[in-house]
Design a protein around this nucleic acid. Sequence first.
DNA 1: GTTTTCACCGACCGATCGGTCAAGCCCGGC
DNA 2: GCCGGGCTTGACCGATCGGTCGGTGAAAAC
Lengths: 224, 224
Amino acid sequence: MTELSTMKDGVANQAEASDRVLQILAEAGRLFASKGFEGTSMRDIALACGISKSLLYHHFSNKDEIYARVAVGSTLELYLFVRDRIPDGPPSQKIRAFMVATAEYFRRYRWAWIASTTAFWNDPDRSRHKERLTRRDRFENFLRGLIQEAIDAGEIRKVDVPMTGRLILSSLNWMHRWYNPNKSATPEQIADVFFDMIFNGLRSGELVEFPGAEPSKVGRRKSR
Amino acid sequence: MTELSTMKDGVANQAEASDRVLQILAEAGRLFASKGFEGTSMRDIALACGISKSLLYHHFSNKDEIYARVAVGSTLELYLFVRDRIPDGPPSQKIRAFMVATAEYFRRYRWAWIASTTAFWNDPDRSRHKERLTRRDRFENFLRGLIQEAIDAGEIRKVDVPMTGRLILSSLNWMHRWYNPNKSATPEQIADVFFDMIFNGLRSGELVEFPGAEPSKVGRRKSR
DNA sequence: GTTTTCACCGACCGATCGGTCAAGCCCGGC
DNA sequence: GCCGGGCTTGACCGATCGGTCGGTGAAAAC
C-alpha cells in the first residue's frame, strides 16, 4: 500500500499538498457531504477553515476544483486500495475481501466518500466528474471480474454478473445513509455480515415447499 | 388500493389538487431529482411549468412546501401501497412481494422518489422532512416484521433482523443510481432477481471446503 | 539592503437567490 | 353594464451567491 502513504486527515491521495490545502479539502468534504455541493458556499468553507474567502481562490481556481479534488481524490486510489487487499485463495474469499476493503475505505475517508457519491451526481455537466466516473467503472469492472472468477471456479452459481455486482455495491454504497459511527459495528464488520447474507443466502438449510404459493423462484434451487 | 386512486401524473396522493398544482409538483420533482434541492431555483420550476415565479407563491407558501409536498407525497402512501400488495402465503413470499411492490412504486413515481431520497437528506433542519422520516420508519418496521415472521416460520435462518432489512432496502434504494428505464428489465424484474440472490444466496449447491483459507464464515452453514 | 515571492485579507462586483406586492386578466352572477 | 374573486403577471426587494481586485506583511533570494 505504498501508493496510499500520502493519505492524511481523511483526505486521500493529496501528495504534495500543503497543510492548508489539506485542511480546506477536509472541511470542504465534510460540508459537501452534509449540505451538498450547491448547499455549500465558499463562505461556508472559508469560515469552517477560519480563513478568508480570498485565500480559497489563492489555493484553488474555483469551487468546482475544490469539489473535484475532494471527489476524484477520494476515488483515485479506491481501486488500488481495494486491489491490494485481495488475498490469494478461493474467489469467494476475494469477493468478501473486496467488500471489507471497500468498507474500510469508506470508514477512513467517510466525508469525501459521501461527498463524491451524493453531491450533484447527475449534473448535466458531466465534465465535472467524468474522471471520477471512469475510475468507478474500473472499480466495478474489477468486482465483476471477481464474480466471474467465482462462477468459473464453481463456487457460486451462474448468476447475472453485472446484476450481482450491483447488489454487492448497493449494500456498500447505501451504507452511508444509515451508518452511525457511534454504534458498535464497524463498516468492515457490516460488510462481512452482508457478504455472509448474500453469499450463503437467507434461506434456512432445509428447503420447505409451498405448493399453494404463486409461481416464483423461491424453491428454484431444488429444480437445478 | 382505493387510497391510491388519487395518483396522477407520477405524483402520488395529491387528492384535491388542481391540474396546475399537479403540474408544478411533477416538474418540481423532476428538477429536484436531477439537480437537488439547493440546485433547483424557483425560477427553474416556473420556467419548466411555463408560468411566472409569482404563481408558484400563489399555490405554495414557499420552496420548502413544494419540496415537502413532493417528498412527503411520494412516501405518504408507500407503506399502504406495499402493504396492500403483500399476498397471503409463506413469509418469504411476502418479503419478495414487498421488494417487487417497492420497485413498482419506484417505477411509477420515480422522480418524486429520487427527490425525496437524495435531496438534502441530512439537513440539520430536520423539521423539513421529519414527517417523511417517520413514514419511512413505519415502512422499514413493516419489512422487519416480515423478516421476523420468516424466521419464526423457519423459512430463513436466524439472521440479524435490522441488518437484513438494511440489506434488502439497500438493493432497492440504490437502484435509482444505475437504473436505466430504456433498458429492458423493469424495476420489478430487478427486485425479483435481487430477492432470489439474497434469499437463495449466490453459493452453488455443493459446499466446497477451503482448508487453507483465512478464518471466515464462508463454510459456516455446515457447522450449524 | 533591496527585490522577489507567497500566504493572506477586506472591500467590492454583477448575477442570482427566495420572496413580496400591487395591479391586471378573465369569467360567472347579478 | 358591472362587479367580485380566483388566476396570473412583471417589477422589485434585501440577501447571498461565486468570483475579482488591490494591497499587506513577512520571509526568502539576491
